[in-house]
């Protein structure tokens, strides 16, 4: 048994819309962005003025001027998850963190957040970038139940806009920043019971998505998009075949890469719009924080008996899924 007891999110307050990106005059316009990727706004830890004046040409400067770090966002999301679960930080026995763009690599992101929370549990990073939600759940399902502490705090946090080249017409339109956290337990029942999880990778294609430590994000856009759609559809089909999924009742959450990609997937699987939960349209792609943030933001809409199907893909190239049922 492994349950999710509570979730939380944190997003920066600065939002930039497509008109703003059009005004950067980098060969894009609001209509093109909306038609190609379906994102209308994205949130960022940078300031609009910084983006406008520098285009973030030295990403090392981004960390200096950012309103929040990945650690800040992860900590805030964790506090909300703990509050929703009704758990104190001192009761958390393990923290695992996925951070796509850490400012520091030692100590690890998990140790930094644990210190801020004053949490005494073991803390380490478990990292794969975008499919972190599936990785973390699948990672915890590896453990013998007696080896897991009563409460485990999982966090995925990313400040990807700090690694965006805003002279690139696509990258600036895709990325947003954010964090999500969730409390899990193998001994205490929560709102969501994990029925199944899966995570794997094809590292021979890992160069398709890259973030330089002190530089920019870059990707082979077309290859990644084809992979993402095809692999997500496969994951969902496989889950449909092994579980009694009813898209009239159950919910799909995909990797929040972009809206048009998600629409291709839900159209393929005949998933009605009402049961496709997403947040990419107004927050942008929050990397590994996107999918768990969606679930957290819809927490109060979950109804008993409902299956939540999460299928996520990303850098690595890696992919994974989770099937949960609401208690």
């Amino acid at each position: 048994m492994l349950d999710i007891l509570g979730m939380g999110t944190c997003h920066p307050t600065t939002s930039i819309d497509n008109k703003f990106l059009e005004a950067l005059d980098v060969g894009t316009n609001a209509q093109w962005i909306e038609e190609k990727i379906g994102i209308l706004e994205r949130v960022t830890t940078l300031t609009a003025d910084y983006i406008k004046t520098t285009r973030n040409q030295d990403p090392r400067m981004a960390a200096e001027i950012a309103s929040m770090s990945a650690t800040d966002m992860g900590t805030e999301a964790a506090k909300k998850a703990l509050a929703q679960a009704g758990i104190a930080a001192k009761d958390v026995g393990m923290i695992i963190v996925n951070c796509c763009a850490p400012r520091e690599t030692l100590p690890g992101e998990a140790v930094r957040i644990a210190e801020r929370l004053d949490c005494p549990g073991v803390a380490y990073d478990v990292y794969t970038a975008c499919p972190a939600f599936a990785l973390h759940v699948d990672f915890l399902r590896n453990f013998r139940e007696e080896e897991l502490p009563e409460f485990v705090l999982c966090i995925s946090t990313a400040a990807m806009t700090q690694h965006v080249n805003y002279n690139d017409r696509s990258d600036g339109a895709i990325w947003g920043d954010g964090a999500a956290a969730w409390v899990m337990s193998a001994r205490h029942k929560g709102k969501l019971e994990v029925l199944e999880s899966f995570f794997t990778a094809d590292p021979t294609r890992c160069e398709a998505v890259v973030v330089d430590s002190f530089g920019f994000f870059r990707q082979d856009g077309r290859a990644v998009r084809d992979f993402s759609v095809r692999q997500t559809v496969r994951l969902v089909k496989s889950i449909e075949e092994s579980h009694a999924i009813d898209w009239g009742r159950d919910v799909f959450i995909g990797h929040q890469a972009n809206r048009t990609m998600l629409e291709q997937i839900v159209n393929n699987r005949d998933i009605p719009a009402s049961n496709h939960w997403h947040n990419v349209t107004y927050l942008g792609n929050q990397a590994g924080a996107g999918a768990p943030a969606v679930l957290s933001m819809h927490w109060d809409k979950i109804v008993p008996g409902q299956h939540i199907v999460v299928a996520v893909v990303g850098a690595g190239l890696s992919w994974g899924s989770i099937v949960m049922r609401a208690r």
């Binding site: 690890g108 803390a123 380490y124 990292y127 995570f199 990778a201």
Partner: peptide
């Protein structure tokens, strides 16, 4: 040349 699950575990 591996096509298997691969990820980082880091504690310092």
């Amino acid at each position: 040349g591996l096509k298997v699950p691969a990820y980082d575990i880091t504690a310092g």
